[in-house]
Design a protein around this nucleic acid. Structure first.
Lengths: 153, 153
DNA sequence: TTAATTACTACTAAAATAGTAGTATTAGTG
DNA sequence: CACTAATACTACTATTTTAGTAGTAATTAA
């Protein structure tokens, strides 16, 4: 049970776009370089995000990508749902996938779990996720400074 | 993001053992037939469960498998952790897997999600899961009877 | 017109998944 | 003791998924 590189890269891509929201389109090339992800692969990932209306693109010389709405208005469930094709178990989306569905008790736990996952991802916006990172880097910086100032502790 | 057949089958296997708790060991063959799972494959799945001390086995003519403790004392996180090899993202278990760990903000969301998943699976015991199924079958039966008695509705 | 970007399509190596198959070991029974 | 029926162990494999690479076409600002 792991989440794919596609979804992970997609989230990172969206976080970069969120951090640059409001300053025009930015190049995939730059995101790829900064995030150390293959530009070509990222190019495949951004297509469905654009298709779903989360991202706007412009082609040509001064093209690039930008978020279609504010970072606070895009949550992680939206991103992951687009990039992470299949759900936990097939019989949730498609009950006809298994003849045992009607009496299957184990299916209940996967539905419950799927709900929790959606709930968790849906509760965090790009804005909030970036804020979490900012706080982390700030405390990291402070700790490093303290260490330098007071090396005994 | 899906959970493997191995983990799904393992949970179903454990649910059967839970329903038969207290009445001696039961054969894998019977579980496999009832649950419509390959007996050989189930044989591979039960090994790590036994290794982790969740299941007891006895070999020979009247052998079989049984739970090592009460169904209320075994939860789904224990089962899934054993059968579902890798976690959401590798850098959670092994921070050295990625050089970006220290500043990576997206890692936070995967840790948060992983925690929620553990929490959810850890909160449901085999006993409770079987009870959920029992209730479902009871209402299913009642609905069917009502339907027969009052077909117009 | 040219250079730089996105858009699209096809292909592929490697890994994971979901098994199958066969043999060895163990233990109760006639 | 031999036989039978179960678990234990090991090796192999077809299929699918993953994580890309590669190349070309279309678009647009300068």
């Amino acid at each position: 049970m792991k989440i794919s590189a596609k979804a992970r890269y997609g989230v990172r891509l969206m976080m970069v776009l969120a951090r640059n929201y409001g300053s025009g389109p930015i190049f995939l090339k730059d995101i790829a370089k900064k995030e150390e992800i293959s530009e070509k692969y990222l190019g495949q990932i951004v297509i469905p995000l654009r298709g779903a209306g989360l991202v706007l693109s412009s082609r040509g010389a001064h093209g690039g990508y930008m978020l279609a709405r504010e970072p606070s208005e895009i949550n992680l469930k939206q991103i992951v749902d687009i990039l992470e094709g299949d759900c936990l178990v097939r019989c949730i989306k498609d009950p006809s996938a298994c003849t045992r569905v009607r009496t299957c008790a184990s299916r209940d736990i996967w539905m419950l779990l799927g709900g929790k996952i959606s709930e968790t991802l849906g509760s965090v916006s790009l804005a909030e996720l970036n804020d979490m990172g900012r706080r982390k880097m700030a405390t990291g910086r402070r700790r490093r400074i303290m260490k330098r100032e007071n090396p005994e502790r």
